[in-house]
Amino acid sequence: MGKGKGRRRGGSKWQQEHRPLSTHSVMPGGITSGRVKRRDGEYFVRHISGAAASKEYICPGCGLRIGAGTAHVVAWRADWIFGDDSAASERRHWHTHCWRISG
C-alpha cells in the first residue's frame, strides 16, 4: 500500500477530539440554514437557492417582488414569546441583500 493510502491521520475517529455540531446545516436542494443574532433578537435563517425557489414573495425590506427562481433568505424569530410554531408561521422571505443590510 502506498504512503498514506488507506490510513487515517491521527488514529481512529474514536480517538479524535469531539467536534461540536455546526449551527448551520445544508438541506437538500441547495438550502442552508442556521441561527443568527441580530440587534433586535435571534432569528432562524434559511438561505434558499434559486433552484429551490419555486414561488414569488414580497420582500419586507424593500417591498419589491422576489421572483420564482431567485435565491433569497427566509427568516423568523428564534426567541418568539408565543413559541416556535407561531414564529414559523410569521416567517418572511427577504432579498439576500435586504436581509443583510437590515440587521
Rank of each mutant, 00 (worst) to 15 (best):
M1T: 07
M1Y: 04
M1K: 06
K3H: 14
K3L: 08
K3Q: 07
G4D: 15
G4Q: 11
G4N: 14
G11P: 02
G11K: 03
G11L: 05
S12N: 04
S12L: 02
P20V: 03
S22C: 13
S22D: 11
T23M: 15
H24A: 12
H24G: 10
S25W: 12
V26Q: 04
M27T: 01
M27I: 01
M27R: 02
G29L: 02
G29K: 01
G29I: 02
G34H: 08
R35C: 12
R35P: 12
V36D: 15
R38K: 10
D40L: 14
G41A: 06
G41H: 07
G41T: 06
V45W: 02
R46T: 07
R46A: 08
I48A: 06
S49C: 05
G50T: 03
A51D: 06
A52Q: 03
A53T: 09
S54I: 05
K55F: 07
E56C: 13
I58T: 06
G61D: 04
G61M: 04
G61H: 05
L64K: 10
A68L: 05
A68W: 06
T70G: 01
A71N: 03
H72S: 04
V74F: 09
W76V: 05
W76H: 05
R77N: 08
R77L: 04
R77V: 05
A78C: 09
D79I: 03
W80Y: 15
I81C: 11
I81Q: 14
F82C: 07
G83P: 10
D84Q: 11
D85Q: 13
S86E: 12
S86P: 10
A87Q: 15
A88E: 12
S89A: 14
S89N: 12
S89P: 10
S89I: 07
H93K: 04
W94F: 02
T96H: 00
H97Q: 08
H97S: 06
C98K: 01
I101V: 14
I101P: 09
I101R: 14
S102H: 05
S102E: 07
S102A: 08
G103S: 12
G103C: 11
